[in-house]
Design a protein around this nucleic acid. Structure first.
Length: 466
RNA sequence: GGUGCCGUUGCCAAGUGGUAAGGCCCGGGUCUGCAAAACCCGUAUUCGGCAGUUCAAAUCUGCCCGGCACCUCCA
C-alpha cells in the first residue's frame, strides 16, 4: 500500500524493515483527564491502519504509550490533592474504557513512561556522551537542537524562522539553556513533585524523551511507522528524531503519518471556548460507534468538523449497514441449495472487496472504502433473496471482513428473540393469514412494547431488536 | 513574518487531466392488509471567483476572495 509520509511530503509505497512485520509507534494520551473527541481520531484512524495491515497478513507490533508523568498531570494532582500516580491510574483506566468502546484493539504493547525511567536515563546518557546534551545549573538536562544538523527535517521548519518564539521561550527559561532552541530531556523536580534518581538530579523525564526511549526499547533503533496528530509534528516528533538519531546513530522512523485536526462547530476545540467535549460525554449521548464511523468518514489527513448533527447522520448510516447485515443473516437461515442470483452476488462481492482494498491501499482512504462497503450492501439487499446458502455465507464473510477492517458493526445483536416474542410473532402471522388485522396489529404493538419490531417477509415474520 | 492545509449538491464527503462515488435528509413510485425493510426514479450541466494551458480541468498554472492549522510541551 501507499501512505503519505510527512517526512517526504509525498505518498510512498510502504515497506518494512523485516518482511511481514510492521513496527508501529503511535503517540498515546497523557492521562490527566478523560480523553477528548480529538484524541479519538488518531485512536480510530491508526487502529484501522493496523487492522488493515493485519488483514493483509502483516504482523503489526503496535506500540502506543501512556504518558503518566508530566506538567499537566502534576497540576491536576495538586488541584485535587491526590498523588500523580493515582490520577494517572484512574484516567488510564477511563482511557481504556473509551478505547474499548471505540472498538480500538489493545496495543501489542502499551508502555508507561514511569516504568521506563531506566531506559530514559540510558538514552539521555547516550545523548550527553555523544555531545548533544548538557546538564544545566539547576539539574535540568537540555538537548542542543542546533547541533543536530537535520533538526527541522520532519516539520520542514528552519530554526532561524522560529526566532520570535525562540526568544520568548529563552527568556521564560532564564539562563538555563545555552540556546533558546534547546529543549528539556530531563527536568529537575521541584519540592513535592514526583521524582526519580538520575546522574543529573532527582527529577522526571521530559515529554519527548519518553517516546524515544520506549520506541527504542520495544521496537528497536529504527521503526517502520511513527504516527500521531498533526500538532505533534513540531516540536514533539521533531525532538524525538533529534534525540533518537543522535543517541542511536540510526534513522528513527522510516515513515511518518499524521492525522488532521478536529474542529468543533468550525472552531478549534478549547476549554476557554466552551466547545470541549470528552469522548465519554459524546458516547453517553449517542454511543461510541458513530464516533468511530465519523472518524473514518473523511480522509484521515483532512481537517474535520465535529458536530452532533453530523454524528446523527453517522448513526443513521451505520443503521443501514446493520440492517443489511441482519437481512443477510435472515436470508441465510431461509436459503436453500438453488438460487439464480448466486453467481452475480459473489461476483459483486469480489468486486466490492477489490475496490475496498484498492482504496485502502491508497493512503488509507477509508471514506472511499466505506463507499465500497455501501455498494456491496446494496447488492446484498438486491440479490440475497435469489441466492444459495453457500453464496450468502461467502458474501457474509466478505462483508464481515470489510467491517472488521474498519472496526464497525461490533454491536451486532446475534441472539434469537425470546421464545414468548417468537410465539407472538407466529400468532400474528396466523392472524394475518386469517385476515384478522385487528388481532395482528394488537400483537404487533405488544411485540413492539417488548422492544422488538416485526417485519413481514416472503419467508415469514422477521424480528428485529429495537 | 515562516511553513502547510482547505473551499465539491440541503448536510457529511470521495474524486487530483477524460466528462461529478458513497452516506444522511427530502420528493415520487414498487412491494405490503397497513407497516417496516428493501429496491427503482428524481434531487450539483457543475466543483469559491476570474483568467490561462490543453482536444479535454473539480483536477495543472497565475491572480483574487474566504476559512483553518503549526511555528517549543495541544491528538
Amino acid at each position: 500500500m501507499k501512505i503519505y509520509n510527512t517526512m517526504s511530503r509525498q505518498k510512498e509505497v510502504l515497506t518494512t524493515l523485516n518482511p511481514g512485520e510492521v513496527r508501529m509507534y503511535v503517540c498515546g494520551p497523557t492521562v490527566y483527564n478523560f480523553i477528548h473527541v480529538g484524541n479519538a481520531r488518531p485512536l480510530c484512524v491508526f487502529d484501522t491502519m493496523r487492522r488493515y495491515l493485519e488483514s493483509c497478513g502483516e504482523k503489526v507490533l503496535y506500540v502506543s504509550n501512556v504518558t503518566d508523568i508530566d506538567d499537566r498531570l502534576i497540576a491536576e494532582a495538586n488541584e485535587q490533592g491526590r498523588p500523580v500516580s493515582e490520577i494517572a491510574a484512574a484516567f488510564e483506566s477511563e482511557y481504556l474504557k473509551d478505547s474499548d468502546g471505540l472498538n480500538v484493539r489493545r496495543p501489542w504493547y502499551m508502555p508507561r513512561a514511569t516504568e521506563h525511567i531506566e531506559a530514559i536515563v540510558q538514552l539521555i546518557t547516550d545523548i550527553i556522551d555523544n555531545g548533544y546534551g548538557y546538564r544545566a545549573s539547576n539539574g535540568d538536562v537540555y538537548f542542543r537542537a542546533r547541533k543536530f544538523k537535520d533538526y527541522g527535517k520532519l516539520s520542514h521548519l528552519v530554526l532561524d524562522d522560529l526566532e520570535n518564539s525562540r526568544e520568548l521561550s529563552a527568556s521564560l527559561d532564564g539562563d538555563l539553556k545555552e540556546d533558546g532552541a534547546d529543549f528539556a530531556v530531563w527536568k529537575a523536580a521541584k519540592p513535592g513533585e514526583p521524582a526519580w534518581d538520575s546522574p543529573w538530579s532527582k527529577g522526571r523525564p521530559g515529554w519527548h524523551i519518553e517516546c524515544s526511549a520506549m520506541a527504542k526499547k520495544h521496537l528497536g533503533d529504527t521503526i517502520d511507522i511513527h504516527a500521531g496528530g498533526q500538532d505533534l509534528i513540531f516540536p514533539h516528533h521533531e525532538n524525538e528524531i533529534a534525540q533518537s538519531e543522535c543517541a542511536n546513530d540510526a534513522t528513527f522512523s522510516r515513515f511518518w503519518m499524521h492525522n488532521g485536526f478536529l474542529n468543533i462547530d468550525d472552531k478549534k476545540m478549547s476549554k476557554s471556548l466552551g466547545n470541549f467535549f470528552t469522548v465519554r460525554q459524546v458516547a453517553e449521548k449517542i454511543g461510541y460507534e458513530p464516533i468511530r464511523y465519523f472518524m473514518l468518514s473523511a480522509h484521515y489527513r483532512s481537517p474535520m468538523n465535529f458536530t452532533m448533527d453530523v454524528l446523527e447522520q453517522c448513526k443513521a448510516s451505520i443503521e443501514r449497514l446493520y440492517t443489511c447485515r441482519n437481512n443477510l443473516d435472515f436470508a441465510i437461515k431461509g436459503a436453500g441449495e438453488t438460487g439464480g442470483a448466486s453467481t452475480e452476488l459473489l461476483q459483486k462481492a469480489e468486486i466490492a472487496l477489490a475496490d475496498f482494498k484498492a482504496r485502502m491501499d491508497d493512503d488509507l482512504n477509508t471514506a472511499d472504502a466505506l463507499a465500497a462497503l455501501f455498494e456491496l450492501a446494496r447488492e446484498i439487499n438486491t440479490l440475497s433473496n435469489g441466492s444459495t446458502k453457500d453464496a450468502l455465507v461467502k458474501t457474509a464473510a466478505i462483508f464481515d471482513g470489510m467491517c472488521d477492517v474498519l472496526g464497525l458493526l461490533y454491536n451486532r445483536e446475534t441472539e434469537e428473540a425470546p421464545a414468548d416474542i417468537q410465539t407472538m410473532a407466529e400468532e400474528r402471522d396466523a392472524a394475518r393469514k386469517a385476515k384478522n388485522w385487528a388481532l395482528a396489529d394488537e400483537l404487533r404493538d405488544k411485540i413492539a412494547a417488548s422492544g422488538y419490531a416485526v417485519e413481514d417477509t416472503a419467508t415469514g415474520p422477521k424480528l428485529v431488536k429495537k
